[in-house]
Design a protein around this nucleic acid. Structure first.
Lengths: 218, 218
DNA sequence: CTTAATTTTTAGCCTAGGCTAAAAATTAAA
DNA sequence: TTTAATTTTTAGCCTAGGCTAAAAATTAAG
């Protein structure tokens, strides 16, 4: 089994790898994990010994196939627990991340199997992110960012890229959640800001807001 | 907050203290925690510094009032999670201890508040042990051990003292669980063994079995 | 009331996982 | 292409929480 620290590294490296596609740098890992590059070097070497990832000095780290399965399993647990917290315990979607961060490390295959069944084998978590199956396969979704839409296009909110409480609370204030229909009424070329319609309300949003919201176009 | 190791010490000391009533010895703690007495000495000194317990060299340790509240809270979490595992995820009562052992360390007041509500604020866990409230107050139950009953007395199983899978599986095989009615049909003075009736079946049990089963006499 | 057995503590060491400061490698700039 | 800036690694140190072996205190036995 892997320690708490190891699991957190594996998970972070997985997420970074998704973004950049290639080997992830020591500094990038350190930033994401709020630790120092020197600590990352140590841990990454240790994980390389365990064949969880491949690592070449000064070149960065990349999960092996095994490593990716481990990561997917941690993410599976995290997202299933988030569904539990929101669906069953009635937490709000901006409150669950930290708690799921702890629950994801509980070790028991059987627990996750039963939790999954109890929740009805959900395919997506409360933020719209896909929940991988027990073998680590993700359901691919073809979602785009709201910022990619043009004037007069519209679609349904299916997820968020940013999951900070601040951002989620902003969305709440604007009555945007998973399933909300959104139409682009105007778009400013210069700064990427938009005017969108949500329900009866029309309002202005900055590019920063738009590029953190996933939309399924219709 | 307290570390995982600290929480486990606090919990173990609490349980030992219930048994012996007075200060618990270094060796007793080491035995329960499957660690070495020298490690216990170190940790107990650390916890004394934090005012979680009082400690006098060679005399043992005793939780302070604060320490008891901390312990009760950990136990509350453990037992609530056990109820969740049995009631909601359909685990069997002999499978839940280890998982609850991990879940009890998840930190979130709100989580426990909501879990408690979700479960209907249960007063007892699946082994019949009382669940303390948020302030650490236990509901007192006046239960006795089956081994204390005399011939022709009877009662209802309300809990177990021993929670090993082996013991719980034995009880299962004999169809004994919480709520099962049991009558003492015979008792051997010499070795404390008994003949009991459970449902339609009458069978022999050793003293060791009888002194780990809690009964509410009727 | 000594001596022996047991319990507990101390001293010193180990590993995991951090950190800082300095050295080395890589990348960017002139 | 040589120098400067940046990134990464190394070396050495720290804390938490273990361990063993030896010393000290307590308890039990003769």
């Amino acid at each position: 089994m892997y320690s708490l620290a190891e699991e957190n590294y594996i998970k972070s490296i997985y997420h970074l790898q998704q973004e950049v596609g290639k080997e992830v740098s020591t500094n990038a890992i350190a930033d994401m994990m709020e630790t120092k590059p020197s600590s990352v070097t140590d841990m990454v070497q240790k994980l390389a010994d365990k064949k969880v990832l491949s690592y070449r000095k000064y070149k960065g780290a990349k999960l092996t196939a095994d490593g990716e399965i481990i990561a997917a399993n941690i993410i599976r647990k995290h997202r299933l627990w988030e569904v539990f917290l929101v669906d069953k315990l009635k937490f709000h979607w901006d409150e669950v991340h930290e708690i799921a961060e702890q629950l994801e490390h509980v070790q028991s295959e059987e627990l996750i199997k039963r939790l999954d069944a109890f929740l009805g084998s959900p395919a997506f978590d409360p933020h719209g992110d896909p929940i991988p199956d027990a073998k680590g396969n993700f359901k691919k979704t073809e979602k785009k960012l709201l910022s990619e839409l043009k004037k007069n296009q519209n679609g349904v909110c299916v997820g968020v890229k940013e999951t900070s409480p601040e951002y989620l609370q902003y969305l709440d204030k604007k009555n945007i959640s998973i399933g909300t229909k959104i139409s682009v009424k105007g778009k400013e070329f210069f700064d990427g800001s938009m005017v969108i319609q949500v329900g009866r309300d029309q309002f202005f949003i900055s590019k920063q807001i738009a590029e953190n919201l996933y939309i399924q176009t219709t």
